Simulated scan of single mutants.
Amino acid sequence: MDTSRKIEAHVWQSRALGEERTVKVYLPPNYDTHTAYPIVYCHDGLEFFTHGRVATIAQQLIAEGRLKPVLIAGIAVNLQQRNQDYAMDGTRHEAYCEFVLDECIPEIEQHYSVDPAQRSMAGISLGAVATLSMMLHKRSLFRHFMLFSGAYFPSVQEALRMVADLSEYRAYMVVGDEEAEATTPNGVYDFLTYNRQMRDLLQERGMDITYKEAPGNHIWGFWQKLLPDALTWWQPTR
């Protein structure tokens, strides 16, 4: 069995954003172009690989038989434009959604063998908000979401409150028990309360929610610890 870890990098010019974006793709051991694989698309994608160690974690889980072979696509963030790209009211949000949904995903799925029924999307903080926004933009594209410490401000909750039925979707939600006063570059926020409110809101609309509060704060060290649980929730082997 091939146990080497393989990550391929692509740089594409986005028409919607008017800039280049890097996308890194993790391939599972013995990747076979004749097999359709589940795939997770990650916002803050390069940080998922470096700070989250998502490829290393997936490789280990697959080797242990705890995770089905999967593809992981990490979409690089433009740090200077992150708020404008990810926030629902950001000035570049519509362009970012167009890039991900109409440029990036079709490009990836031309290059790699993907099971379209097993797409997932993952995001941390504002990336979790962008993930839910993608769901609202193209309701049929995704069914599964991994949402880490989402920045669910009242305006975000209001956007989801306008949706009557979310019963076709599943989400893994986690937040740190120290995030009632979470420090971010934009200020200090009570993400613990926001996540509890969003959990209730999504469940009221029929979404299948796996919700966890775990020891930790609004940092990659916390999210990395929960990635094995999130991945095996999404693609369990038994």
Rank of each mutant, 00 (worst) to 15 (best):
P28H: 05
P29T: 09
P29Q: 14
P29W: 05
N30P: 00
N30H: 11
N30M: 12
N30R: 13
Y31Q: 12
Y31M: 13
D32W: 02
D32C: 10
T33I: 13
T33G: 14
H34T: 15
T35C: 13
T35D: 02
A36G: 10
A36T: 13
Y37I: 08
Y37L: 11
Y37E: 10
P38V: 08
P38M: 12
I39S: 04
I39C: 12
V40I: 13
V40E: 06
Y41C: 06
Y41T: 00
C42P: 02
C42I: 04
H43C: 05
H43T: 06
D44F: 01
G45N: 01
G45V: 03
G45M: 07
G45A: 09
L46Y: 08
E47I: 00
E47N: 11
F48R: 00
F48C: 04
F48I: 03
F49Q: 04
F49A: 01
F49W: 05
T50D: 11
T50Q: 10
T50S: 13
H51C: 00
H51Q: 14
G52L: 01
R53L: 12
R53Y: 05
V54H: 01
V54F: 01
A55H: 04
A55N: 08
T56S: 15
T56N: 15
T56R: 12
I57T: 08
I57C: 06
A58S: 09
A58L: 08
A58I: 01
A58G: 06
A58F: 03
Q59F: 04
L61R: 06
L61F: 02
L61K: 03
L61E: 08
I62L: 10
I62H: 04
A63E: 15
E64Y: 03
E64H: 07
G65P: 10
R66Y: 07
L67N: 03
L67C: 10
L67M: 11
L67F: 02
K68C: 11
K68M: 13
